[in-house]
Write a protein that binds this DNA or RNA. Structure first.
Lengths: 244, 244
DNA sequence: AAGCAATGGTACTGCTTGGTACCAAGCAGT
DNA sequence: ACTGCTTGGTACCAAGCAGTACCATTGCTT
């Protein structure tokens, strides 16, 4: 099927005659000065970078291979030898992008002395990472890819939100050990806190429904969330599960 | 608008079993008995219904017009006269689907006497609506379309989550008036509560990372969320905003 | 410097899609 | 029943896509 059939003429479909613009006839119009070839890892990085940029720029229905190659240089061959095809490239991109977000969240936690300070700090980090211009762009890539491939979604959740939630859960466990809070399930509580911070806002941002929130609004949101959360779990007798 | 959701319009849908090729060669192999023409609204309903079903079934990268027509009957002409094209059909589908979800959430709120009961009731409704098999299917359609069109996303948020959150906010306002809770911003608090209920679970469900949660797990999540939330906002002196 | 293996560049194939054109078949008004 | 308008069915077109083949070029090795 791949061997060229007995048709060497251009008469495949004469209707599509208007093709003279699609081909660039001059192969000598190469780059003037530097045509240095890139090593495999350089090429890989360039491809991933181009794919990321274009995914951010184009948004929906990510870039075509042509577009990626045009920006990154190299040729389709590079993609197939390096990633095995488009799916492989998306996999690699997902891994890279996930790894890029996490550190900015986990870094430097536990700086505050008390729990409230730690929570506020964590919340600021999270909201700013998620809802920043760049965070939203990356989030859009991730989410759309997650719909396309549950396998990638699984990997993303394990390495992204999963780790973030686990980190917060550990902080809560420590506070519980110190007797500052009462919580039967710190992981569940961590989920709640993170969910509060997202609220409807994160999705609205993801869908580009409004500009990034201002400092004040974010502080208000964080304040409300921390107040409710701390008020709900801190240790002070029992106001919980009172029978209704 | 919803005249008759094609109760008796089964006349054509059995063609989809054929499928031997992309084209059905014999124009005389039509439906055996009747070829009654559908009215405009019937046709519209059939198209929307087929589009919804196929979106659910195919998941990623919604169905093509051919697929929709093959199931709904009619022809491409129907789509263009009725919806103006594919985008118009997606718009209409989004509106329909959004309107479908909301009532099952808002219906029958305020049944319980006390606030805790009301919150638990609301939470059960919300989680079950969102994370049910059907809710997830519809949610996937909506989310993917939201990425494709911020305009649709805006309409969805206004008619879906926006209304749900506003409803809860009203409930909270009433409780505040009765002095049961203290909350400077009930809408923000409602956002928090709904966010807690989603946590990471809803997104994980949306991406098909696990089966629907069991009754027990849902009750545990709801219990935790309600406990934290009520504990955080109920009126009992001031444990909030203590300076750290 | 010559040769060779790997990479870059591009045309091409096969396929799918949305949109349009056109013919055929039903329906309604008279 | 005839006629004209509307709707259904299908072929067709242009565009875009991933993947493959193949030539041209590069740069390292010997």
């Amino acid at each position: 099927m791949k061997t060229n059939p007995a048709d060497e003429s251009k008469k495949k479909t004469d209707i599509r005659s208007g093709q003279q613009d699609s081909r660039t006839p001059a192969p000598l119009a190469r780059s003037p000065a530097k045509t240095r070839r890139l090593t495999a890892s350089e090429r890989r990085a360039a491809l991933l970078r181009a794919a990321k940029e274009l995914s951010v720029e184009l948004g929906v229905a990510g870039p075509s291979l042509d577009a990626i190659i045009k920006r990154a240089g190299g040729s389709r061959r590079s993609i197939y030898t390096e990633f095995g095809g488009k799916e492989g490239l998306r996999d690699a991109l997902m891994a890279e992008v996930t790894a890029e977000i996490l550190p900015s969240l986990t870094d430097d936690v536990n700086r505050s002395a008390d729990l409230r300070g730690t929570l506020v700090h964590f919340a600021r980090r999270l909201v700013n990472v998620l809802e920043s211009e760049r965070g939203v762009s990356i989030g859009r890539i991730i989410m759309q890819d997650n719909f396309a491939s549950p396998a990638r979604a699984r990997s993303f959740f394990a390495n992204g939100p999963g780790k973030g939630t686990a980190l917060l859960a550990k902080i809560l466990e420590a506070a519980r050990e110190r007797g500052e809070i009462e919580s039967p399930d710190c992981l569940l509580a961590a989920n709640c806190f993170i969910g509060m911070l997202r609220g409807n806002f994160y999705m609205e941002r993801l869908f580009l429904l409004h500009e990034p929130s201002g400092e004040e609004e974010i502080e208000a949101r964080i304040g409300t969330a921390v107040d409710i959360f701390l008020g709900g779990i801190e240790a002070r007798g029992k106001n919980q599960r009172q029978p209704s």
